[in-house]
Design a protein around this nucleic acid. Structure first.
Lengths: 207, 207
DNA sequence: CCGTTAAGTGAACAAACGTTCATTTACTGG
DNA sequence: CCAGTAAATGAACGTTTGTTCACTTAACGG
């Protein structure tokens, strides 16, 4: 075969990516062999090496793509500057974004340990950028007296852990729809950070 | 060698358990070989089969022990019946218990996928007992009007995910001590569930 | 119409895997 | 002091692992 317009190889590469993503998410990086991935695409394991030099590079590629897509999508969503509005935007964005990418989300926070030192540092840096954006938002909210006291970095990690927990139990055919889920989780985060006190249901005279 | 009093094999078994736990936590079940575990104890891989029939049984043993220890410890702590007091007791207990068992905690929620069907069902059942206890507490608190509205099963999962998140970043030599951590997280959970409204800082006339 | 080249095959590699087994070691109860 | 036995050895098993490589296939540009 040779390249058509749009490249034949590009299509195969994408298919292999998808299969690898699904398998890594279900059985873990170490639990999946190159042959298994190749089988899923319908080709030989050796052909995968036309696209990635090693299995490790394939994993790094998946995780890097996931993180860059996440950061880009967050920026592209044009989040408001106001701390409280931005916090709400973050929560809703995070849930919506990750719910459509359960496999790559799973991989990106379960398989950090399967990355070698260099790749780990690279992915970790991207992850930190995302986390720090949230921490900064919380910090500004606290500083302005519109969020409850607390360490913003701890709160940021807590919020992300809480939201990521969805992925471990959510099923599309389950009793809770995506919209209801988003409301439920936003209301939890709002209360947890004290964002509900200053906006929605003030219980004393506003300053 | 043969058994002394207290059994020589028991000691070896325990040592092998510890090494396996540390390795599984760091590199994952599939990423660790029987030879690697044996090396850590200072013996041959074949000797491990005196204690566990398969590698899978070794994993199941670690996870089952972790879950039973968790449930027993929670019961033994004699948690109060009052929903709000029990919720607070749960949060503090959970943090304290898991912080001293980071490795087995890691394994127990990362390696569920490495269990075969039967073992998975068994461990999942134990895990559900723990989760349902918390959900029931939340339910009673909501029913009594002393906690904010919300689905108690979702809230239970959210709380556990939030607390388990600690394990992914906490370092004993870090800036945050265990006591401060416990306070910070309890205050987050209290606000998140609305437990702070009815107890500590009532903002309107109690009914 | 031919030569270049991307894309994929299938066999092969050494290493590592979980597990088995005959054998050795060293202690204990009789 | 001997028989019995828990405990560990070390070689061996068949399989699977990630990866390499010489070779085929098929479409495009000139």
């Amino acid at each position: 075969m040779a390249r058509k317009i749009g490249s034949d190889g590009e299509r195969t590469r994408g298919a292999a990516s998808s299969v690898a993503q699904a398998l890594f998410a279900r059985k873990g990086y170490e639990g999946v062999s190159m042959r298994e991935i190749a089988d899923g695409v319908g080709m030989q394991a050796s052909a995968l090496y036309n696209y990635w030099p090693t299995k490790q590079d394939l994993l790094r590629d998946l995780m890097e793509r996931h993180m860059r897509e996440l950061l880009d999508a967050w920026t592209a969503s044009n989040p408001p500057d106001d701390p409280l509005a931005r916090l709400q935007a973050f929560v809703r964005f995070h849930i919506r974004h990750h719910m459509r990418r359960i496999d790559s989300t799973f991989i990106s926070y379960m398989e950090l340990r399967s990355l070698d030192r260099q790749n780990f540092a690279q992915i970790e840096a991207l992850r930190n950028r995302y986390e720090r954006d949230l921490a900064a938002t919380l910090d500004r909210g606290i500083e302005a007296g519109r969020l409850g006291q607390g360490d913003p970095r701890i709160a940021a990690r807590a919020i992300i852990a809480l939201l990521n927990g969805i992925m471990t139990w959510y099923r599309a055919d389950g009793p809770v729809g995506p919209a209801a889920l988003e409301e439920e989780y936003w209301s939890m985060v709002a209360r947890m950070t004290g964002a509900d006190q200053t906006e929605e249901t003030p219980c004393s005279t506003p300053a």
